[in-house]
Amino acid sequence: MNTLKTRWQQQSLRWLDDRIPARTKHTLNLRSIFIFPSKFGLSYLLMCGCLFLLGTNYQNNLMLLLCYFLLALLLVCLFKSYLNFACLTLTVDPIQSVFAGNNAVLSIQIQAANVRPGTSGGHDDKFPQGQLHFRWLRQKSMFNCDLNQAERSIRLPYITQRRGVYPLPRVTCISEYPLGLYRCWTHLDFDQRLVVYPAPVPCEMQLESRSQEAGKNATSQPGHDDFYSLRPFVPGEPLNRVAWKNVAKGADWVSKSFSQQQSLGGFLRLNLSSRDIEKELGKLAFQVLQLSDNQVPFGLILGSKCVEPGSGERHKQTCLLALARYGTLESAV
Protein backbone atom coordinates (compact mmCIF):
# COMPACT_ATOMS: atom_id res chain seq x y z
CA MET A 1 0.00 0.00 0.00
CA ASN A 2 2.82 2.40 0.82
CA THR A 3 4.41 1.74 -2.57
CA LEU A 4 1.15 2.45 -4.38
CA LYS A 5 0.64 5.61 -2.34
CA THR A 6 4.15 6.82 -3.17
CA ARG A 7 3.66 6.15 -6.88
CA TRP A 8 0.32 7.95 -6.83
CA GLN A 9 1.91 11.00 -5.17
CA GLN A 10 4.74 11.04 -7.70
CA GLN A 11 2.32 10.82 -10.63
CA SER A 12 0.12 13.58 -9.19
CA LEU A 13 3.16 15.86 -8.73
CA ARG A 14 4.22 15.29 -12.34
CA TRP A 15 0.70 16.12 -13.49
CA LEU A 16 0.72 19.30 -11.38
CA ASP A 17 4.12 20.30 -12.80
CA ASP A 18 2.65 20.18 -16.29
CA ARG A 19 -0.62 21.89 -15.39
CA ILE A 20 0.68 24.53 -12.93
CA PRO A 21 4.38 25.22 -13.66
CA ALA A 22 6.66 26.72 -11.02
CA ARG A 23 6.90 30.53 -10.98
CA THR A 24 7.22 33.27 -8.39
CA LYS A 25 3.95 34.92 -9.45
CA HIS A 26 0.68 33.07 -10.04
CA THR A 27 -2.54 34.52 -11.44
CA LEU A 28 -5.31 31.99 -10.84
CA ASN A 29 -7.30 30.90 -13.87
CA LEU A 30 -9.30 27.99 -15.23
CA ARG A 31 -6.19 25.84 -15.63
CA SER A 32 -4.95 26.25 -12.07
CA ILE A 33 -8.27 26.22 -10.14
CA PHE A 34 -10.06 23.12 -8.91
CA ILE A 35 -13.63 23.36 -7.60
CA PHE A 36 -15.93 20.79 -6.03
CA PRO A 37 -18.87 20.88 -3.60
CA SER A 38 -17.80 20.92 0.03
CA LYS A 39 -19.21 18.56 2.64
CA PHE A 40 -21.80 21.18 3.44
CA GLY A 41 -22.50 21.57 -0.29
CA LEU A 42 -23.04 17.82 -0.73
CA SER A 43 -25.43 17.83 2.24
CA TYR A 44 -27.20 20.82 0.68
CA LEU A 45 -27.53 18.96 -2.63
CA LEU A 46 -28.88 15.90 -0.82
CA MET A 47 -31.48 18.08 0.90
CA CYS A 48 -32.55 19.49 -2.47
CA GLY A 49 -32.99 15.93 -3.77
CA CYS A 50 -35.15 15.05 -0.78
CA LEU A 51 -37.29 18.18 -1.29
CA PHE A 52 -37.76 17.24 -4.95
CA LEU A 53 -38.87 13.70 -4.06
CA LEU A 54 -41.27 14.95 -1.38
CA GLY A 55 -42.69 17.66 -3.62
CA THR A 56 -43.18 15.21 -6.50
CA ASN A 57 -44.67 12.52 -4.28
CA TYR A 58 -47.15 14.84 -2.57
CA GLN A 59 -47.62 17.09 -5.63
CA ASN A 60 -46.67 20.09 -3.50
CA ASN A 61 -45.80 22.99 -5.81
CA LEU A 62 -44.44 25.17 -2.99
CA MET A 63 -41.99 22.46 -2.01
CA LEU A 64 -40.93 22.06 -5.63
CA LEU A 65 -40.54 25.83 -5.94
CA LEU A 66 -38.33 25.87 -2.86
CA CYS A 67 -36.24 23.01 -4.31
CA TYR A 68 -35.75 24.86 -7.61
CA PHE A 69 -34.85 28.07 -5.79
CA LEU A 70 -32.22 26.29 -3.69
CA LEU A 71 -30.78 24.61 -6.80
CA ALA A 72 -30.61 27.97 -8.56
CA LEU A 73 -28.79 29.41 -5.53
CA LEU A 74 -26.37 26.47 -5.70
CA LEU A 75 -25.66 27.20 -9.37
CA VAL A 76 -25.14 30.93 -8.72
CA CYS A 77 -22.71 30.10 -5.91
CA LEU A 78 -20.75 27.90 -8.31
CA PHE A 79 -19.96 30.85 -10.62
CA LYS A 80 -19.50 33.31 -7.78
CA SER A 81 -17.03 31.01 -6.00
CA TYR A 82 -14.97 30.54 -9.14
CA LEU A 83 -14.98 34.22 -10.19
CA ASN A 84 -13.99 35.35 -6.69
CA PHE A 85 -11.10 32.88 -6.57
CA ALA A 86 -9.98 33.58 -10.15
CA CYS A 87 -9.45 37.27 -9.33
CA LEU A 88 -6.35 36.51 -7.23
CA THR A 89 -2.71 37.08 -8.04
CA LEU A 90 -0.21 35.65 -5.54
CA THR A 91 3.46 36.60 -5.38
CA VAL A 92 6.21 35.71 -2.92
CA ASP A 93 9.31 37.37 -1.56
CA PRO A 94 12.59 35.41 -1.74
CA ILE A 95 12.78 33.09 1.25
CA GLN A 96 15.62 33.71 3.69
CA SER A 97 18.16 31.05 4.66
CA VAL A 98 17.88 29.59 8.16
CA PHE A 99 19.73 27.22 10.46
CA ALA A 100 18.48 23.68 10.93
CA GLY A 101 15.76 23.51 13.59
CA ASN A 102 14.51 27.05 12.95
CA ASN A 103 11.40 27.94 10.99
CA ALA A 104 11.72 29.44 7.54
CA VAL A 105 8.98 31.90 6.55
CA LEU A 106 7.45 32.25 3.09
CA SER A 107 5.80 35.64 2.69
CA ILE A 108 2.89 35.57 0.21
CA GLN A 109 1.44 38.82 -1.14
CA ILE A 110 -2.19 38.72 -2.33
CA GLN A 111 -3.45 41.11 -5.01
CA ALA A 112 -6.46 41.39 -7.26
CA ALA A 113 -5.70 40.36 -10.83
CA ASN A 114 -7.98 43.03 -12.34
CA VAL A 115 -7.05 45.92 -10.00
CA ARG A 116 -3.79 47.84 -10.20
CA PRO A 117 -1.68 47.89 -7.02
CA GLY A 118 -2.36 50.96 -4.91
CA THR A 119 -5.78 51.68 -6.45
CA SER A 120 -7.86 49.20 -4.45
CA GLY A 121 -8.92 50.28 -1.00
CA GLY A 122 -9.81 48.14 1.96
CA HIS A 123 -13.50 48.05 0.90
CA ASP A 124 -13.15 47.85 -2.89
CA ASP A 125 -15.95 45.72 -4.33
CA LYS A 126 -13.64 44.57 -7.13
CA PHE A 127 -11.28 42.90 -4.70
CA PRO A 128 -11.99 39.24 -3.84
CA GLN A 129 -13.87 38.70 -0.60
CA GLY A 130 -13.93 36.10 2.15
CA GLN A 131 -11.10 34.13 3.70
CA LEU A 132 -8.22 32.21 2.17
CA HIS A 133 -6.75 29.17 3.85
CA PHE A 134 -3.10 28.27 3.22
CA ARG A 135 -1.13 25.14 4.02
CA TRP A 136 1.79 23.21 2.65
CA LEU A 137 0.87 20.37 0.32
CA ARG A 138 -0.21 17.25 2.22
CA GLN A 139 0.08 18.97 5.60
CA LYS A 140 -2.81 19.62 7.97
CA SER A 141 -1.74 22.86 9.66
CA MET A 142 -3.84 25.67 8.17
CA PHE A 143 -3.15 29.42 8.16
CA ASN A 144 -5.91 31.91 7.38
CA CYS A 145 -5.90 35.28 5.62
CA ASP A 146 -8.93 37.58 5.70
CA LEU A 147 -9.25 39.40 2.38
CA ASN A 148 -11.51 41.99 3.98
CA GLN A 149 -8.62 43.31 6.07
CA ALA A 150 -6.24 46.03 4.95
CA GLU A 151 -3.18 43.75 5.10
CA ARG A 152 -3.58 41.16 2.36
CA SER A 153 -0.57 38.98 2.94
CA ILE A 154 0.36 35.92 4.92
CA ARG A 155 3.58 34.55 6.40
CA LEU A 156 3.63 30.80 5.99
CA PRO A 157 6.11 29.08 8.36
CA TYR A 158 8.04 26.03 7.23
CA ILE A 159 9.65 23.76 9.82
CA THR A 160 13.23 22.73 9.00
CA GLN A 161 14.79 19.62 10.49
CA ARG A 162 17.82 18.88 8.30
CA ARG A 163 20.45 20.95 6.56
CA GLY A 164 20.72 21.15 2.80
CA VAL A 165 19.41 23.02 -0.22
CA TYR A 166 16.05 21.77 -1.42
CA PRO A 167 12.93 23.12 -3.16
CA LEU A 168 9.93 24.09 -1.06
CA PRO A 169 6.78 21.98 -1.50
CA ARG A 170 3.71 23.35 -3.19
CA VAL A 171 1.38 25.67 -1.29
CA THR A 172 -2.31 24.76 -1.18
CA CYS A 173 -4.67 27.74 -1.24
CA ILE A 174 -8.36 27.14 -0.40
CA SER A 175 -11.47 29.33 -0.51
CA GLU A 176 -15.09 28.48 0.39
CA TYR A 177 -16.57 31.89 -0.33
CA PRO A 178 -19.44 32.89 -0.39
CA LEU A 179 -21.64 30.35 1.41
CA GLY A 180 -19.31 27.42 1.90
CA LEU A 181 -21.18 25.33 -0.65
CA TYR A 182 -18.13 24.94 -2.89
CA ARG A 183 -14.49 24.41 -2.16
CA CYS A 184 -12.09 26.14 -4.56
CA TRP A 185 -8.44 25.23 -4.24
CA THR A 186 -5.13 25.24 -6.06
CA HIS A 187 -1.61 23.86 -5.53
CA LEU A 188 1.01 26.48 -6.35
CA ASP A 189 4.76 26.03 -6.78
CA PHE A 190 6.51 29.35 -6.10
CA ASP A 191 9.89 28.15 -7.39
CA GLN A 192 11.73 28.74 -4.10
CA ARG A 193 14.84 26.86 -2.97
CA LEU A 194 15.47 26.90 0.76
CA VAL A 195 19.03 26.90 2.10
CA VAL A 196 19.25 25.34 5.57
CA TYR A 197 22.59 25.75 7.32
CA PRO A 198 23.83 23.26 9.94
CA ALA A 199 22.68 24.10 13.45
CA PRO A 200 25.63 25.77 15.26
CA VAL A 201 27.26 23.60 17.95
CA PRO A 202 29.31 25.63 20.49
CA CYS A 203 32.94 24.54 20.60
CA GLU A 204 36.49 25.83 20.94
CA MET A 205 38.08 27.64 18.02
CA GLN A 206 40.13 25.29 15.83
CA LEU A 207 41.78 27.58 13.31
CA GLU A 208 44.68 25.94 11.49
CA SER A 209 47.44 28.04 9.94
CA ARG A 210 49.75 27.49 6.99
CA SER A 211 53.17 28.54 8.20
CA GLN A 212 54.66 28.57 4.73
CA GLU A 213 52.18 31.25 3.68
CA ALA A 214 52.10 33.21 6.91
CA GLY A 215 54.78 35.66 5.84
CA LYS A 216 53.23 36.24 2.42
CA ASN A 217 49.69 36.68 3.61
CA ALA A 218 50.24 38.98 6.58
CA THR A 219 47.97 42.00 6.84
CA SER A 220 47.32 44.81 9.29
CA GLN A 221 44.38 44.57 11.69
CA PRO A 222 43.36 47.00 14.46
CA GLY A 223 45.29 46.17 17.64
CA HIS A 224 47.75 47.46 20.22
CA ASP A 225 51.21 46.52 18.88
CA ASP A 226 52.63 49.12 16.45
CA PHE A 227 51.78 52.75 15.79
CA TYR A 228 49.83 53.01 12.55
CA SER A 229 48.39 56.51 12.01
CA LEU A 230 46.59 59.49 13.51
CA ARG A 231 42.85 60.01 13.20
CA PRO A 232 40.33 62.57 14.55
CA PHE A 233 39.50 62.10 18.22
CA VAL A 234 36.06 60.66 18.98
CA PRO A 235 34.51 61.72 22.34
CA GLY A 236 34.42 58.76 24.72
CA GLU A 237 37.70 57.19 23.59
CA PRO A 238 40.39 56.44 26.24
CA LEU A 239 42.53 59.49 26.96
CA ASN A 240 45.75 57.45 26.73
CA ARG A 241 45.12 57.24 22.96
CA VAL A 242 45.20 61.05 22.56
CA ALA A 243 48.30 62.50 20.87
CA TRP A 244 49.05 65.05 23.61
CA LYS A 245 52.03 66.51 21.75
CA ASN A 246 49.72 67.66 18.98
CA VAL A 247 47.25 69.06 21.52
CA ALA A 248 50.06 70.96 23.30
CA LYS A 249 50.98 72.65 20.03
CA GLY A 250 47.42 73.96 19.71
CA ALA A 251 46.40 71.52 16.98
CA ASP A 252 43.10 69.63 16.86
CA TRP A 253 42.62 66.63 19.09
CA VAL A 254 43.67 63.40 17.36
CA SER A 255 43.96 59.78 18.47
CA LYS A 256 46.70 57.27 17.81
CA SER A 257 45.82 54.15 15.83
CA PHE A 258 47.80 50.94 16.29
CA SER A 259 48.02 47.78 14.25
CA GLN A 260 49.03 44.19 14.69
CA GLN A 261 50.06 41.54 12.20
CA GLN A 262 47.53 38.79 11.58
CA SER A 263 47.93 35.92 9.14
CA LEU A 264 45.38 35.21 6.44
CA GLY A 265 46.44 31.56 6.33
CA GLY A 266 43.92 30.35 8.93
CA PHE A 267 41.66 27.49 7.85
CA LEU A 268 38.74 25.62 9.37
CA ARG A 269 38.91 21.95 8.45
CA LEU A 270 36.19 19.30 8.60
CA ASN A 271 37.12 16.29 10.73
CA LEU A 272 36.34 13.48 8.27
CA SER A 273 37.31 10.77 10.78
CA SER A 274 34.44 11.68 13.11
CA ARG A 275 31.44 9.35 13.26
CA ASP A 276 29.04 12.28 13.60
CA ILE A 277 29.68 14.44 10.53
CA GLU A 278 26.57 16.53 11.19
CA LYS A 279 27.92 17.53 14.59
CA GLU A 280 31.27 18.44 13.05
CA LEU A 281 29.49 20.58 10.46
CA GLY A 282 27.61 22.28 13.28
CA LYS A 283 30.91 23.06 15.02
CA LEU A 284 32.26 24.57 11.82
CA ALA A 285 29.09 26.66 11.44
CA PHE A 286 29.59 28.00 14.98
CA GLN A 287 33.22 28.89 14.27
CA VAL A 288 32.29 30.57 10.98
CA LEU A 289 29.82 32.80 12.82
CA GLN A 290 32.30 33.65 15.57
CA LEU A 291 35.16 34.45 13.20
CA SER A 292 32.91 36.53 10.96
CA ASP A 293 31.55 38.52 13.91
CA ASN A 294 35.13 39.24 15.03
CA GLN A 295 36.15 40.10 11.44
CA VAL A 296 38.93 37.50 11.46
CA PRO A 297 39.90 36.27 7.96
CA PHE A 298 39.66 32.49 7.54
CA GLY A 299 39.31 29.76 4.96
CA LEU A 300 37.32 26.53 4.93
CA ILE A 301 38.37 23.02 3.88
CA LEU A 302 35.65 20.40 3.37
CA GLY A 303 37.34 17.30 2.02
CA SER A 304 38.33 18.12 -1.55
CA LYS A 305 36.51 21.46 -1.53
CA CYS A 306 38.36 24.54 -0.34
CA VAL A 307 37.07 28.06 0.25
CA GLU A 308 39.93 30.54 0.12
CA PRO A 309 40.51 32.82 3.13
CA GLY A 310 38.44 35.95 3.33
CA SER A 311 36.15 37.96 5.57
CA GLY A 312 32.91 39.88 5.46
CA GLU A 313 29.24 39.01 5.08
CA ARG A 314 29.59 37.55 1.59
CA HIS A 315 32.42 35.25 2.66
CA LYS A 316 30.37 34.09 5.65
CA GLN A 317 27.42 33.23 3.41
CA THR A 318 29.72 31.36 1.02
CA CYS A 319 31.12 29.23 3.84
CA LEU A 320 27.71 28.52 5.37
CA LEU A 321 26.36 27.55 1.95
CA ALA A 322 29.28 25.15 1.46
CA LEU A 323 28.46 23.57 4.84
CA ALA A 324 24.80 23.24 3.90
CA ARG A 325 25.63 21.57 0.58
CA TYR A 326 28.34 19.23 1.88
CA GLY A 327 27.58 15.60 1.05
CA THR A 328 24.40 16.40 -0.91
CA LEU A 329 23.58 16.45 -4.60
CA GLU A 330 23.72 20.25 -4.46
CA SER A 331 27.42 20.09 -3.60
CA ALA A 332 28.20 19.38 -7.23
CA VAL A 333 26.42 22.56 -8.38
Rank of each mutant, 00 (worst) to 15 (best):
P37A: 09
G55Y: 00
S43Q: 10
D18N: 15
N57F: 10
T24C: 11
L13V: 02
R14A: 15
G41H: 06
N61Q: 11
K25R: 13
Y58L: 05
L75M: 14
D17S: 13
Q11D: 10
I33P: 06
P37N: 00
S43W: 06
S12P: 05
C50G: 11
G49F: 10
D17C: 09
F36D: 05
Y44Q: 08
C50P: 07
H26L: 06
S38W: 06
R19G: 01
R23D: 13
D17M: 00
Y68E: 09
F40A: 11
R19H: 06
L53E: 02
C48P: 00
L45H: 02
F34L: 03
L66A: 11
L71G: 08
Y68G: 02
A22G: 02
A72T: 15
L30D: 14
K39I: 01
T56H: 04
L28K: 03
F79G: 12
A72P: 09
G41E: 01
N60Q: 00
K39E: 09
I35Q: 02
R14E: 13
L30C: 03
G49V: 09
Q59P: 04
A22C: 08
F34W: 09
L78A: 06
G41V: 01
L66S: 11
K25L: 13
K80Q: 13
C48R: 05
C77H: 10
R31H: 14
C48W: 06
T24E: 14
L64G: 00
G41T: 01
K80T: 14
L64P: 06
L73A: 14
I20P: 00
M63I: 14
N61D: 08
C77N: 14
W15N: 13
C48Y: 02
W15T: 14
S32P: 04
G55N: 04
L16D: 04
C77A: 15
T56K: 08
C77F: 11
T24L: 11
L54N: 00
L66N: 00
G41R: 02
G55Q: 08
Y58P: 04
L65A: 15
A22H: 08
F79M: 11
